[in-house]
Design a protein around this nucleic acid. Sequence first.
DNA 1: CCTATTCGTCCAGTTACCGAACAAATGAGC
DNA 2: GCTCATTTGTTCGGTAACTGGACGAATAGG
Lengths: 402, 402
Amino acid sequence: MTTLAAMASTRQMTLRTVMRVLLEREAVSRAELARLTGVSKQTMSEVFRELEEGGWVRRSGRTQGAVGRSAATYEVCVDRALVFGADVGGTKVQAALADMHGIILTETVEPTDPRGGQYVVDQLARMSAELAHRASQPLERVLVGTIGIPGAYNARTGKLFMVPNITGLEGTPFVEDLRERVDFDVHVGNDVNMAAKGEQWMGEGRNVDDFVFIALGTGIGMGIINERRVLSGAHGAAGEIATLPIGADPYDGRTFRSGGLETALGSAAIRERYEGSGGRSGLTVREIIDRIGDGDTIAAATVDAIARILAQAVLAVSAVLDPERVVLGGSVGARRELLERMEVHLPLCMPSPPQCTVSKLGSRAGLYGTIANSLDLLRDSLFQTPGLDIPMPRAKPFEVHP
Amino acid sequence: MTTLAAMASTRQMTLRTVMRVLLEREAVSRAELARLTGVSKQTMSEVFRELEEGGWVRRSGRTQGAVGRSAATYEVCVDRALVFGADVGGTKVQAALADMHGIILTETVEPTDPRGGQYVVDQLARMSAELAHRASQPLERVLVGTIGIPGAYNARTGKLFMVPNITGLEGTPFVEDLRERVDFDVHVGNDVNMAAKGEQWMGEGRNVDDFVFIALGTGIGMGIINERRVLSGAHGAAGEIATLPIGADPYDGRTFRSGGLETALGSAAIRERYEGSGGRSGLTVREIIDRIGDGDTIAAATVDAIARILAQAVLAVSAVLDPERVVLGGSVGARRELLERMEVHLPLCMPSPPQCTVSKLGSRAGLYGTIANSLDLLRDSLFQTPGLDIPMPRAKPFEVHP
DNA sequence: CCTATTCGTCCAGTTACCGAACAAATGAGC
DNA sequence: GCTCATTTGTTCGGTAACTGGACGAATAGG
């Protein structure tokens, strides 16, 4: 148990407070920051000296053009700490290095190591080192990294699960394994959750406290942002809407494994529906949707049927979560034709549909989400002024007497 | 913006820390508390003097039977601050007053004022004063109150909405109105959310971080506890699962208003299904379920059909939220016959069903929830040692260059 | 050139903590 | 009954980290 002195001393509190204010500004003087924070000018001078000695801030110039003595201005050294983010897919890995402002310094894409398992862990460690080197930055400055994985992570057991697309990761202590290979703090998140976080930072979820990101591609999944934070669920499986009992009978043995909604909306289902209605054989979903523009009425009817089911899924999600916005993504979900048809069906099945938009980030949403997650963790660990670590006691249930 | 000195001074931080530790213990000496917190014995003596002068702690005795000088022991004055809770229903109001340990000092039930609106506000204010008087406590000690309302509360607009069961409350600034009538801090919550909170404190949700409470009675609603906190949604309407597109076609005009699931599972639906299958006319849902014990096979088949639909609703909720547990309540939901049948259907439509239990708190869950909510708010406001109130800056989206 | 204004340093002061020393008060062991 | 070990609680001198006022230096405006 930490004491006030040993935990974050009052001087630490002041240092972190000053850093937080500085992170939002680009050139500030000590006198101005004293006014902003209420800390005395004397103390602020000391604080800036310590921060400067630590490499966190630097002089950036002087004010001019105002009455009175000109002031020295300071800014954050945004490369004093760096973050790593990687979006691991079944076929490729996107990774990037960013500074404290979230500016991406270097990034790369390469095929996921097909051998899977520990080889993917090794690959990530090597990529982070390469990105630091290409940015001409010491690897020691990378303090936090987040990895997006197409599966679920149970924070309690520390194990990955539901990871069918990458060989040799199911049931592994992935975070622990990677932490042994790198010096920075490693976190993992579901790739659709990371995409939701990417939309929150750079996309359609910006400035929205409660929204969902639905990724429709080969299958379907959802990331949930509730009160600005990712909602993971008891076992890390929140948002696995493939199993929603919509569009197919959940008691049917044929849909039991992949789930009602995925059975109805997955790529296989779209192609079957198209071909079963007389459409051409052998087209991909993208090709089917492209044919709407060519006047293929069967393609239009297929997308309309898909949109009608998707509208019910949005209704179900809204009933449970009450999101302000639904962002659609994924190779199929991002098609505007689908959104347009869905917006026709939504008001027919729910009185007040949420706002629906299409992701503009494409396949970069997940990568952005891992960077954003790392930035949040970095800032919390470096600049938060937390309360003391003694938790608020829960109200104990009392004995109920008849 | 607060300074370190003006916000919570370091002495305030220490006082609150000591109170938090004391709240979990019943008789502690200053020396022991110094050891527990790391604060020096000198400082701890000063802190206890201040807390004693403020009426927050008192001497409770002396230790004995151990080597060394015996120690004075202290305990929290649990009635130094009180909380109020009220569960407002369409027909009755349950209200209670509790101390800092959550022990209920006085409680009462009376019919909801049928005139509704401001009369209900007046009624709540009067009930809180009466309960304090019956507890022989000055009303000034009541610092926080929470009101459970059968409707939704939009925290942004400060207005109630979706409150069909109580006249004259729709669209009112209920919290503001009540705050003008009482001196304590007023909060409002949806009644099913409050019931979920009551289960968290005293019922089946104890020690469970993620669970849902489904209330099935005349209609159906759900309260969500995610990471130990109530999930409200963007407009305060999370958990309104009456509208889930399950059990009825959401595009059917007949179900559009009350929603698919409520159309399928509401009391009216249960009676219609029973009577339409040849059952006796004019029975209530409770009477129908009671007849299962009498061998009424139509009643059993009706409940089985209801359970089968409810299982799909649990599947849908689990797909979105991934709860650890589902607690069933409400006049119909709490019937064990329903849970028994639902547990037969669940494994047939989902591979890993969540744990399902029936509430044992009955109609008191909501009242307990309002008390628990008030206790949380009280403790946070009195004893939290928060970080400084400067928020962590969000990562600004950066300009994306092609 | 004078005046108002601002920045940044200096300085005396206060708050709130700390650890060591010590007296008082216990029970165990002989 | 005495001695010793142990514990509590008070006293005291100390330090960390803040404050506000004073003041000199440095600006722009009139």
